[in-house]
């Protein structure tokens, strides 16, 4: 099975071959280095005019991409670590995401900003964060964070080709080295799966062929394998069947699959790798509270309110683990269904 980083790399190669208006900008992109995580490897050799290695200037390169997009090109920016998106926040929030709106729809600004987020690789406090929550709910900005079970290459292609507004495309960095395993004939290992027809689809995983679940788990990106692992253990050890909903689009939040599952389970567990406060999970719970016409109970699992320590045992303790999901699921299901 192919790993996720080469899948993204192949998608970029296909995009460059398909379209002459695609340009890639970022730090350390040139071969033989090919970008810090090798997702851009080989592009500078094949398409030297369209791969621009840049100074360490995140704000400027995102701004340049905005200018390129306003003038008709399809730029992709690679930000080496997601932690560094803060340096480009003004460009993302006040410029790229604004242009179409403030100019009354007269322009489009299709920039894709690809960046790795996430921990579990020992990179420490400033190279491991999941900061995507900062960018949720910015009008005009779409935030996409696929899991290793999404069609990664196709999602990246759609972000580049089918967008009129900027897309922040989060690539979980633990995922890079994991096998890419999209559903085949509606299955991933022991799970039955369902995929929505959205531009950035939501996946639903079930261990009992979509019979009404005991609880619904909402998660995304790098937490997905951990949630699936927890679901297996819940089924085998505790006879609790979870349905796992994995959107690839974090913002704006698609809620249809979540509502369908939750209407049966009435119990929602949200799991994310970032810190709890004001996280994605808070928005998921609040949004479902607003829209569901039935009662439900909810719980959130996320990272501890701390920096991400470098030492392995401390990092493990700070991050949400399958055991945390299992404990939260057992507690959530210990009360009668609402």
């Amino acid at each position: 099975m192919e790993r996720c980083a080469p899948v993204l790399n192949r998608s970029l190669h296909a995009l460059f071959a398909e379209r002459a208006d695609v340009i890639l900008l970022g730090e350390d992109l040139l071969d033989p280095y090919g970008g810090a995580f090798k997702v851009s490897a080989g592009l500078s050799t094949k398409f030297p005019d369209r791969v621009l290695t840049t100074p360490i200037s995140e704000a400027a390169i995102v701004g340049v991409a905005g200018g390129l997009a306003l003038r008709g090109l399809r730029p992709i920016v690679e930000i080496m670590f997601g932690d560094f998106t803060t340096l480009a926040a003004d460009q993302i929030i006040n410029h790229l995401a604004k242009f179409r709106g403030i100019y009354h729809g007269q322009v489009s600004c299709p920039v894709v900003i690809r960046t790795p987020m996430g921990a579990r690789r020992g990179y420490g406090p400033t190279h491991s964060q999941s900061l995507e929550k900062i960018f949720l709910g910015i009008p005009g900005l779409t935030v996409v964070a696929p899991s290793r079970h999404h069609e990664l290459g196709e999602l990246l292609r759609r972000a580049v080709v089918d967008s009129t507004d900027p897309v922040l495309f989060i690539e979980n960095k633990a995922m890079y080295a994991q096998p890419h395993e999209p559903p085949v004939a509606g299955r991933v290992a022991e799970f039955s799966t369902r995929t929505t027809a959205d531009r950035f689809p939501t996946l639903t995983f079930s261990l009992n062929d979509f019979a009404p679940p005991d609880l619904t788990i909402a998660t995304y990106g790098g937490m997905t394998p951990l949630a699936l692992q927890a679901a297996l253990e819940l089924a085998m050890e505790h006879e609790l069947f979870a349905e796992i909903i994995v959107p690839s689009q974090l913002s704006p939040l698609p809620t249809a699959e979540l509502l369908t599952s939750l209407s049966a389970s009435r119990r929602l567990l949200v799991a994310e790798e970032g810190t709890l406060t004001a996280g994605w999970g808070a928005e998921v719970v609040a949004r479902l509270m607003d829209t569901a016409d039935f009662p439900f109970a909810s719980a959130r699992v996320a990272a501890a309110n701390s920096i991400i320590p470098t030492s392995r045992p401390l990092e493990d303790a700070m991050l949400p683990q399958p055991a945390d999901l299992i404990a939260a699921a057992i507690k959530l299901t210990s009360s009668p269904r609402r």
């Binding site: 704000a59 400027a60 701004g63 340049v64 905005g66 200018g67 390129l68 003038r71 090109l73 730029p75």
Partner: peptide, 13 residues
Amino acid sequence: GIVPCAAGMALAE
């Protein structure tokens, strides 16, 4: 913030 955007436009042209 407009300055890098303008640079991107110059690059596009």
